[in-house]
């Protein structure tokens, strides 16, 4: 029945079964099986940019110290820089 309206803030892309979204970012998350082993597929829905993370990379993220994560969250750490 179509009387329920869409929940705000949740965007469902065509190929993305799950979206981790907030008012600040929306990333489609799925496990990709195209390779010889599974990997996490992350798609930034606002730009279309895709990043795959394998198991070892994910484990590294799990162990990333909070301070390091904060540095990465600086918008000019890697993304919005004059030299890019």
């Amino acid at each position: 029945m179509s009387d329920e309206q869409d929940r705000p803030g949740v965007v469902v892309g065509p190929s993305s079964p799950e979206v981790v979204g907030s008012e600040f970012a929306e990333v489609a998350v799925s496990v990709d099986h195209e390779g010889n082993g599974p990997r996490l597929k992350l798609e930034d829905l606002r730009t279309g940019r895709v990043r795959y993370l394998d198991a070892l990379e994910l484990e590294t993220v799990v162990w990333l110290p909070d301070g390091h994560l904060r540095q990465l969250l600086d918008p000019s750490a890697h993304r919005w820089r004059e030299d890019k």
Binding site: R70, L73, D74, P75, S76, W80, R81, E82
Partner: peptide, 12 residues
């Protein structure tokens, strides 16, 4: 945590 285009503020 930071601001975009940090050179406008003399760095990060």
């Amino acid at each position: 945590l930071g601001y975009p285009y940090h050179q406008g503020y003399g760095g990060r």
